[in-house]
Amino acid sequence: MTRTDHTPPRNPTEHLLAGIWREVLGLTEVGVHDNFFHLGGDSISSLRVIARLRAAGHEVSLPELFRHQTVAALAEAIGPTGAAATDAGASEGDTAGPDDSDFGLLGAGDLDVLDRLYGEAKEASE
């Protein structure tokens, strides 16, 4: 697990994100410059993060988490109201990356299923 110097959350959105990452990744501490995937995040845990953020009222897509891999970057992208920011320099017609709607099939109600499946897979690997 790769860590940067610990910088604690500085605003409510960063506090929310750091708390979700701690819970999902089973960590005691997450700084705003820590990279989700370097901390042990993977595709399944990223879906769990998205489901928790949506349950908290933040409409975040999977591609956004992949583009903004630190608490600070994702907090800036989603803002205090949960409105996702457009990447700087990206135009509406830009088709270089995946369409966010491709990942919009999971809702907050899927959290229990993901938790159960992730828990079973984790137990089987131990």
Rank of each mutant, 00 (worst) to 15 (best):
H6S: 01
T7P: 00
P8W: 02
P8G: 14
P8Q: 11
P8Y: 02
R10L: 11
R10F: 03
P12F: 12
H15R: 15
L16Q: 07
L16I: 02
A18T: 01
G19A: 11
I20V: 12
I20P: 00
W21F: 05
R22G: 00
R22S: 02
E23C: 13
V24S: 06
G26E: 05
G26R: 15
L27I: 00
T28Y: 03
E29T: 09
E29V: 14
V32Y: 07
V32N: 10
H33P: 06
H33E: 14
D34A: 08
D34C: 14
N35E: 14
F37E: 07
H38I: 02
G40Y: 11
D42V: 01
D42P: 00
S43I: 00
S43M: 08
S43P: 00
I44D: 01
S45Q: 12
S46V: 05
L47Q: 11
L47S: 09
R48W: 02
R48D: 02
V49I: 14
R52L: 15
L53C: 09
R54H: 06
R54V: 01
R54S: 08
G57I: 03
H58L: 07
E59C: 03
E59R: 09
S61I: 00
L62Q: 09
P63W: 08
L65R: 02
R67G: 10
H68T: 00
H68K: 01
V71P: 10
A72R: 12
A72G: 03
L74G: 08
E76Q: 14
A77V: 02
A77C: 14
T81Q: 11
A83F: 07
D87L: 14
G89C: 04
E92C: 08
E92K: 09
D94N: 13
D94P: 14
A96W: 01
A96I: 11
G97H: 05
P98W: 11
P98S: 13
D99P: 05
D99W: 06
L105V: 13
L105E: 05
L106V: 11
L106Q: 03
G107R: 08
G107V: 05
G109I: 01
G109P: 03
D110F: 04
D110G: 11
D110I: 07
D112H: 05
D112A: 09
V113M: 08
L114E: 06
D115T: 06
D115S: 03
R116D: 15
L117P: 01
E120D: 10
E120V: 04
A121S: 07
A121T: 12
A121Y: 03
K122I: 15
E123P: 00
A124N: 04
S125G: 06
